[in-house]
């Protein structure tokens, strides 16, 4: 005879809850990516990140370039980014910059891109719509901004990988 107790809603619900919890990661003890503290300071309140969204600016020109973005978070806050990249060279790695955001990004707005020459700043023409999380950008992706050409004929392209 079948055990009828397992068919009771309470038991079944509990089993399903634990199963779903384990599958979806709601059980903290399954966390493999523990955040350790360095030195004597407590790290108990440091959140584990949700994931990574990267923004890379690659300057392939012979002038410094400034890229201005606004990162709007899910909670309503904004992280303004002014990313300066040096002229393209093999002598150092300052001709590109990679910014990390946790995956609580709601949208990315492109404000301006300009190159800085001895003659002054030259705005780089571009018309980029904002990237909207869940539509045009997702957690785990990379936004690649490439600044190319020779001043004053400089252009920028944006791609999401």
């Amino acid at each position: 005879m079948r055990d009828r107790s397992i068919r009771t809603p309470g038991v079944l619900a509990a089993v399903v809850a634990v199963g779903l919890g384990m599958l979806t990661g709601c059980v903290g003890s399954l966390n493999p990516a523990l955040v350790n503290s360095l030195g004597g300071n407590t790290a108990s309140a440091i959140d584990n990140p949700e994931g990574s969204l990267l923004i890379v600016v690659m300057n392939r020109t012979d002038a410094a370039a400034l890229t201005v973005l606004d990162i709007q978070k899910d909670g309503g806050g904004t992280v303004p980014l002014s990313l300066l990249t040096r002229p393209n060279t093999v002598l150092n790695d300052l001709d590109h910059v990679i910014v990390h955001q946790d995956c609580d990004v709601a949208r990315i707005d492109f404000r301006e891109i300009e190159v800085v020459t001895s003659a002054g700043s030259i705005p780089v023409p571009f018309a980029l719509p904002p990237l909207i999380a869940g539509t045009s950008i997702f957690c785990g992706e990379v936004v690649a901004i490439t600044i190319d050409g020779a001043a004053p004929n400089v252009f920028a392209t944006v791609a999401v990988y």
Partner: peptide
């Protein structure tokens, strides 16, 4: 309940159990 409390949110899932996106 799980869906509304965020337990099925992949970002939260990743923060708690990992395996979806790298954090390092």
């Amino acid at each position: 309940l799980l869906a509304t409390t965020g337990c099925l949110n992949p970002n939260l899932v990743n923060a708690t159990s990992g395996g979806l996106y790298p954090v390092a």
